[in-house]
């Protein structure tokens, strides 16, 4: 077996398929701001669901575990959003620190 040939074959299989959701050349990629806005909307919807459930429980006709889970979902979504925000701010500061 030719060692060079075998390494070459590995290299040839190394062409990765395009990542799903990656912008194809030609069409305009969705703007990050729009995507972030959508994500914030989704997190807000989860918070509203949690609120509505908690109100129902307080009024005496709610479902305890469903409320706890709704609040938990809102919490996790909020944390995830916070991570994204922190990353963005970090990247921004990194760029601003660059000496030109």
């Amino acid at each position: 077996m030719d060692p060079l040939r075998s390494t070459g074959s590995i290299g040839s299989t190394g062409s990765l398929p395009a990542a799903p959701g990656a912008a194809r050349p030609g069409d305009r990629p969705a703007s990050f701001a729009a995507e972030l806005g959508k994500a914030i909307g989704a997190v807000d919807a989860l918070q509203a669901q949690g609120d509505a459930q908690a109100e129902k429980v307080a009024a005496g006709h709610g479902n305890l575990h469903e409320t706890a889970l709704a609040l938990e979902k809102a919490d996790v979504a909020m944390r995830a959003l916070l991570k994204v925000r922190n990353k963005v701010v970090e990247a921004y500061q990194e760029v601003m620190r660059m000496s030109v």
Partner: peptide, 18 residues
């Protein structure tokens, strides 16, 4: 995906409560 698993557990909790 994460929320799907939560929803499944939620249905389990509801069934056991019933």
């Amino acid at each position: 995906d994460f929320f799907t698993a939560l929803n499944i557990s939620s249905s389990g909790l509801s069934a056991e409560r019933e």
